[in-house]
């Protein structure tokens, strides 16, 4: 069945009709070209955003020019010990496959005294940047100042900065995970995560909080455990309090792994004694991995969305910035049991 993909043309015309201007004006406005008054431009952009304007698939594919995208990450997140962001980088590469996009990765050294400027910034032919995981503000500002194309952030966002972001839905995800525990009868639920060190963890904390309030539970502050940014330190020692809840909601699988180690040291079993739920669906280097019930983070879909946003913005640089949250599901394994199996010892 022959299909004409004229989605882009039709949508531009619709925007034009809705605003009362010509399609040429719409095209110019979206591309950021001169000759459009700022008032008309903002009306066009608003309409485009509301109608969900998307440069058609055919347009994206038909440009034979290869796009080169820089991928930047900090070595704080890309060391040998933590491969979470390597996997995300891999998803980005996969998402670019077959789309005429070349990616160049730079892992810059955050540990040195002065933060170096990413060398990719000085290369002429980079059409846009992905930034995976948090980078220091200094570095962000350098990139924003010197770059020529769009920037899309993965797994973090910087409100107020001129870039798009794609994140997992931290708030909803942790709400779902905590609810999973509450539905199985747990009312004494702790939280593991260092909210001050990571915006994602802070959001997850609020998701946990939402569920707790829904069930009318006030958490015991003793059960809010720090994991001390275990992503970057060798040993993730979690200090367990004397009295324990019947379940823990962990802000990442990584910290769930360290919690598991700490519980085991105390002679406690999961889930017979304490139930544990994680977040990420990504745990390696711990034999707990194949038993951990967790909230799945869909790297592939995040990367696809990031590439989609990048392409969209390359074609229409003036569209308003977007932060996209990708919700997912709980992966049930065997780290959670019904409450009543024994509370803290």
């Amino acid at each position: 069945m022959p299909v004409q993909n004229t989605k882009k043309k039709v949508t531009m015309r619709q925007i034009a009709e809705a605003v009362g201007v010509s399609t040429v004006t719409v095209s110019n406005a979206l591309a950021g070209k001169a000759g459009v008054s700022s008032e008309v431009r903002s009306r066009i952009l608003e309409k485009a955003a509301r109608l969900g304007y998307d440069p058609g698939e055919r347009e994206k594919r038909s440009s034979s020019k290869t796009i080169t995208l820089g991928v930047i990450s900090s070595n704080m997140y890309m060391s040998e010990k933590t491969s979470f962001y390597w996997e995300m980088y891999q998803s980005v590469v996969n998402a670019c496959f077959g789309k005429n996009i070349l990616t160049m990765l730079e892992v810059f050294d955050e540990r040195k005294g002065s933060v170096q400027e990413p060398t990719l910034l000085s290369r002429e032919q980079i059409d846009g940047f992905f930034i995976i995981g948090r980078v220091p503000d200094v570095c962000m500002r350098q990139i924003l100042r010197k770059r020529r194309g769009p920037i899309v952030l993965l797994d973090f966002d910087r409100p107020g900065y001129q870039c798009d972001s794609v994140l997992s839905d931290n708030y909803t995800g942790m709400y779902r995970a905590t609810k999973y525990l509450a539905e199985r009868g747990h009312r004494q639920i702790g939280f593991v995560g260092s909210v001050r060190t990571s915006a994602n963890v802070l959001e997850r904390y609020y998701g946990y909080w939402k569920c707790m309030r829904e069930y009318g539970i006030t958490p015991d502050p003793e059960w809010l455990l720090e994991d001390r940014d275990v992503r970057t330190e060798d040993a993730g020692e979690i200090r367990l309090p004397g009295r324990l809840p019947s379940a823990f909601a962990c802000s990442s699988d990584y910290s769930a792994g360290f919690l598991y180690n700490a519980l085991r040291k105390r002679g406690l079993r999961v889930p017979e004694d304490i139930s544990v739920i994680g977040y990420d669906d990504y745990l390696y280097g711990n034999d707990f991995a194949d038993r951990l019930t967790t909230y799945h983070v869909d790297f592939d879909r995040m990367a696809e969305k990031a590439v989609e946003l990048m392409q969209r913005r390359i074609m229409a640089p003036m569209l308003p910035h977007v932060t996209h949250y990708i919700d997912s599901y709980i992966v049930e394994r065997s780290s959670v049991s019904k409450a009543g199996g024994g509370a803290g010892r």
Partner: peptide
């Protein structure tokens, strides 16, 4: 309503962190 309330709370807390004032470990319930 709960989402809005918590969102507001988060905004306030983030501002405190930015100002690097002495903050309690986690936002109080």
């Amino acid at each position: 309503l709960e989402d809005r309330l918590l969102g507001f709370r988060r905004d306030q807390y983030t501002r405190l962190l930015e100002k690097a004032e002495k903050v309690e470990t986690v936002p109080a319930f």
